[in-house]
């Protein structure tokens, strides 16, 4: 994988990225779009919030990626009684009858931790969110009088939008830490649906995951390659101007002529995208351009990641919050249709 020039290095890594994508597509069928977005997030080094119903393949998807990129994989289930220390350690009485303390999911893999999957994050208490958000932002954790580092960790969290009882809505500040919110839906292709139900290949997840070629990428080199992509892929002045207009339009849609049916646009948006959100969007757009073999970002690259990187950052008036998924998608689509480039 090591080559002498940055261009050839990126070309090699692009081939590996596409190989990873292809391998995951073999075991998780009918999810090409989420797989592309997760690939982008891996190389843009951003955390991902998965949104989807129960049993649609979120865990399988993440395990397949984990096998492909190598490194450690940990998973926790969000419950109402989950406490922050449950992520760090757990205590038990050993066979010797004495109490023991073992590392929790966050510490178990040490610096090898590559993917941390938090299932149903909205069932966990805000205290847990708080710890996780710090780990996400700083990739460090202080425990047992020691600073632990997770330089290669990506957090993939999941939330079930259907059930609302005994859940804690993730605050906007917490949502903003995620680079993307990726919807995982049941495939609508009948052939794919039939395969998922009748093809015995998909019945045993462990055996299915073994079909993915292991260690296609080296998880400990992803930070370096991610940085190289950001430095090599250029954004022209025209594109910067376009991105800036998109940003302003998320803050004040009506000023840019964006209008949704049956929505009071002056009251809809309380807060548009944050600077961090736009920065993450551009990082993701650069990776998309790279994956498509380009050395410069095009508006299409922004469009490819626009919904996934910005929809969860928008803060709507409480009266519209119940419809946020639908309204966010509609609003962002209208913004893209309204703002011209160049």
């Amino acid at each position: 994988m090591s080559t002498s020039t940055p261009d050839s290095l990126l070309a090699d890594w692009r081939a590996h990225a596409l190989k990873l994508e292809s391998e995951v597509n073999k075991v998780v069928i009918g999810q090409q779009r989420p797989i592309r977005l997760i690939t982008i997030a891996i190389f843009a080094r951003g955390h991902v919030l998965l949104e989807g119903d129960v049993g649609v393949g979120k865990t399988t998807l993440l395990r397949a990626f984990t096998r492909g990129i190598g490194g450690g994989y940990e998973r926790v289930e969000g419950t109402i009684d989950l406490m922050p220390n449950d992520l760090v350690y757990h205590t038990y009485l050993g066979e010797d009858g004495r109490p023991h303390v073992d590392a929790g999911p966050l510490l178990r893999q040490g610096e090898r931790l590559a993917v941390f999957f938090f299932n149903e994050i909205n069932r966990a208490r805000p205290q847990v969110h708080s710890l996780l958000l710090r780990v996400m932002a700083e990739r460090t954790l202080t425990a047992f009088n020691k600073e632990h580092h997770f330089p290669h960790m990506l957090v993939f969290a999941d939330r079930n939008q259907v059930e609302k009882e005994e859940t804690f809505e993730i605050p906007s500040a917490a949502r903003d830490r995620f680079m993307m919110e990726i919807p995982i839906a049941v495939p609508d292709d009948e052939a794919v649906m039939e395969s998922l139900v009748f093809d015995t290949r998909y019945h045993d997840v462990d055996r299915l995951i073994e079909n993915v070629q292991a260690d296609i990428l080296h998880f400990d080199r992803l930070n370096g390659i991610g940085l190289a992509i950001q430095e090599q892929v250029q954004a022209s002045p025209a594109l910067r101007k376009y991105a800036l207009k998109l940003w302003l339009a998320t803050q004040n849609p009506s000023a840019y002529g964006v209008q949704l049916d049956d929505v009071d646009m002056s009251r809809l948006v309380l807060s548009g995208s944050s600077p961090r959100g736009m920065s993450m969007m551009l990082r993701a757009a650069r990776v998309n351009a790279w994956l498509n073999g380009r050395a410069a970002v095009l508006p299409e690259d922004i469009h490819a990641v626009f919904h996934a990187t910005l929809a969860h950052r928008l803060v709507f008036s409480p009266v519209y919050e119940m419809r946020r998924t639908e309204l966010a998608r509609e609003l962002l689509t209208h913004i893209i249709k309204t703002i011209a480039a160049p």
């Binding site: 022209s236 594109l239 410069a296």
Partner: peptide, 11 residues
């Protein structure tokens, strides 16, 4: 042509 003029001069 538009992409070459505005976004990607190498194209």
């Amino acid at each position: 042509l538009s992409r070459a003029v505005f976004f990607d001069p190498s194209a």
